[in-house]
């Protein structure tokens, strides 16, 4: 709460840590997370992954497997990710409350972004909570199909969560997918715009032209991330669960029997389930 201004370094430190946690662990995680997730789309480009069937699913599974092979994963996750995000979110929530948006009177583009930064923060908390609660903590009652996410069947279980079950898109699934679409888009905006403001906060960009130039770069990053985000959500919303499951099963089995068909990728690629 507001204390006398003798409380340096607390106030300043907190605000700077807020900014930092937005950029470094959280932001970097967001990038890698979206890269991983969107592998469902770009994985198609990785010819090595085609050996198991659906290359996107395989790549994604491969990434997930890699993550799960990180030693002390829980500790890394808690301290490198959950705590910083919680810190950033809680403070961000509190900071956001200190302002009063006034876009109706001052409808400038920058002001809209300021306002959206706050809205995306609020909704972001909601989305991240849902995302974690359902997929990580297994609060399956929040998922229309009641699916449990399984890291051995990463893509298929994720797709089921977004589709409301394994038998194609349901109405409830559509709602979940839409929520994902909005949530992810807002967070991407939040991060890209946050990168832009962080450069002002830290005094990296000072002159108006410098701020403009950095703005273009942030917007570029934002567009790229947005593409990944959309590709992921759309990719999972439209993924053929059965086919994905086959691929994953093959990979799981393949774990014990090291790649036998690796020298003949073309053979499996022809067996791709074309949708």
């Amino acid at each position: 709460m507001a204390t006398k201004h003798t409380d340096f370094p607390n106030h300043f430190l907190l605000r700077r840590l807020h900014s930092l946690t937005g950029v470094v662990p959280t932001g970097i995680f967001l990038i890698t997370h979206l890269l991983t997730n969107s592998s469902v789309a770009w994985g198609n480009l990785d010819s090595r992954a085609k050996e198991y069937g659906h290359p996107g699913v395989a790549t994604f599974q491969h990434e997930v497997n890699f993550i799960h092979s990180i030693p002390y994963l829980l500790i890394v996750e808690v301290f490198g990710l959950w705590l910083p995000i919680a810190f950033h979110s809680i403070l961000g929530f509190y900071y956001a409350l200190s302002g009063k948006s006034n876009v109706s009177a001052y409808a400038y583009q920058d002001n809209w972004r300021y306002t959206l930064q706050r809205i995306s923060g609020y909704l972001g908390i909601l989305f991240i909570f849902y995302h974690i609660a359902t997929l990580r903590w297994g609060w399956t009652f929040l998922i229309p199909g009641g699916t449990q996410w399984d890291h051995n069947y990463a893509a298929s279980t994720l797709a089921m969560a977004l589709q409301g079950g394994g038998d194609g898109m349901t109405a409830a699934g559509l709602a979940v997918s839409a929520f994902y679409f909005i949530g992810v888009s807002l967070l991407v905006f939040h991060f890209a715009n946050g990168l832009w403001t962080a450069a002002i906060t830290w005094g990296i960009t000072i002159s108006v032209p410098a701020q403009k130039r950095w703005g273009v770069m942030c917007a570029g990053l934002g567009v790229a991330l947005m593409a990944m985000a959309w590709a992921s959500v759309i990719g999972y919303a439209r993924l053929d669960v059965t086919a994905a499951r086959q691929t994953e099963q093959r990979m799981l089995d393949g774990k014990s029997k090291p790649a036998s068909s690796a020298d003949n990728p073309a053979q499996t690629s022809s067996a791709l389930p074309a949708r």
């Binding site: 340096f8 700077r16 302002g99 920058d110 930064q117 002002i200």
Partner: peptide, 22 residues
């Protein structure tokens, strides 16, 4: 700068950039 680091200092700016426009 000490004063500007405290509560209500420069970091309370939310970068809406309305100020410069009006």
């Amino acid at each position: 700068l000490d004063a500007l680091m405290g509560p209500g200092g420069v970091s309370d700016c939310g970068n809406s950039q309305n100020c410069v426009k009006v």
